[in-house]
Design a protein around this nucleic acid. Structure first.
Lengths: 232, 232
DNA sequence: ACCTGAACACCGTTCAAGT
DNA sequence: ACCTGAACACCGTTCAAGT
């Protein structure tokens, strides 16, 4: 049963914790140790309080991590420099800024929730929607298209950033690529004609470029009519 | 230190477990109880064995869940009926089939890993790559574009399917939308001009249509030249 | 209103011992 | 080669009691 949880200490004691402080400390721990390393005991210790105190400010660990991820998203958005000309370029710049921001906190992207409740998630979808509207897209397509762009930034972003996190131990990108490269090389070219020939592409690829490639595809397909027959 | 873990009992006893059996039982548990409900103790009980036995067949819980998700992906791909004409339509059909398959196991999409190690992930990327190549796209763009399509299906799919799972308790889609709708309605239209006007779209939207909308945008933007200025 | 910290009910994982 | 099951080292969460 959640009680009234204040963002900043209002009435009570002066040294009171706040949700802001708790989430901030959680982000620090998440950055240092990853999700597995974030523990109520450790967080309480850092904040010099008891574990029970934390539950006054957040409902549970899921909410804590979701709030932390949303906070990171807010930071990322704040760093975006949107060009005034052209809604398309602004969408592009916004998407890239969010990707870059999430990339600095590898645990965050995969814990972003649907843009239905938390502050910065709502803000991002609204920003995207406003820009999409400015694009001249028919009104009845604006919602679907905006949502898709939101999910692309957030979902594909998570996928591209994720490998670095690989469960528990943080494998270095080099190790990860090396191992994947070996795997692909050992594949039967008869069964995997594409992958067998793509080892060099895998080794040389840039994550951010990949994200941008897809974002551009999406934005270029923006004026697609619904239910088309795609090109052959 | 992982040992040689056989897929099927080869030499040893006839009643031996196998990775296949363990993963299969895990999928059942995951479907019934979600990720939180999958427990080595419960799994061992279902398989009438001890928890330690499971570690002979999988390295740990992360691997178990990843294998289970990969298995679901395999099933989804098997259900795809690809048209012979047109690589674009085949890509579309493949993407949709995978989405539909993942949608039946809501826990699965978010546990899919990068297509670098597990069987069906590799197969899916290879299929996509082969189709993209058939599209006539310049060779040097095929890898980036294929990867993006893989990540779209997998990552955006996860995002669209996820809300139904919302941590722990499985909120019904209706409850979820109702709550989100209330939230959006209460937003200040000055600060959230787009969302405030999109409540009806939210209520009436179809998840699958949304997925397909984005997939079509992506496929229509396929022949986009690198680093373009998107339309205004 | 907000914090304390012990206690509860679990977990994943290991490992000596078995067959 | 494969399985057993007790034991270890944790977890998140609750709650009576404090201030």
């Amino acid at each position: 049963m959640p009680r009234t949880r204040g963002r900043a200490p209002a009435g009570g004691r002066a040294d009171a914790l706040s949700q802001e402080v708790v989430v901030g400390a959680a982000i620090t721990l998440l950055d240092e140790l990853g999700e597995r390393g974030l523990t109520f005991r450790l967080l309480a210790e850092r904040l010099q309080t008891g574990t029970g105190a934390l539950y006054w400010h957040v409902a549970n660990k899921d909410e804590l991590v979701a709030l932390a991820a949303d906070q990171v998203l807010g930071h990322a958005m704040a760093a975006a420099q949107l060009p005034a000309e052209g809604a398309g370029s602004a969408l592009r710049a916004l998407g890239i800024a969010v990707f870059d921001g999430l990339d600095q906190h590898p645990w965050a992207a995969s814990h972003l929730t649907a843009p239905t409740a938390l502050h910065h998630g709502l803000r991002l979808l609204d920003r995207i929607g406003t820009l999409v509207a400015r694009t001249g897209l028919p009104a009845e397509r604006q919602f679907a298209v905006s949502t898709v762009i939101f999910y692309y930034v957030t979902g594909v972003g998570a996928r591209i950033i994720a490998p670095a996190v690989t469960v528990g131990a943080v494998t270095s990108r080099e190790d990860f690529l090396a191992r994947a490269g070996e795997r692909w090389s050992s594949l039967d070219p008869g069964e995997y004609p594409f992958l067998a020939g793509a080892v060099e592409d895998l080794r040389g690829h840039d994550d951010r470029d990949q994200f941008v490639t897809g974002l551009d595809m999406l934005l270029n397909g923006l004026h697609t009519t619904p239910d088309p027959t795609p090109p052959a």
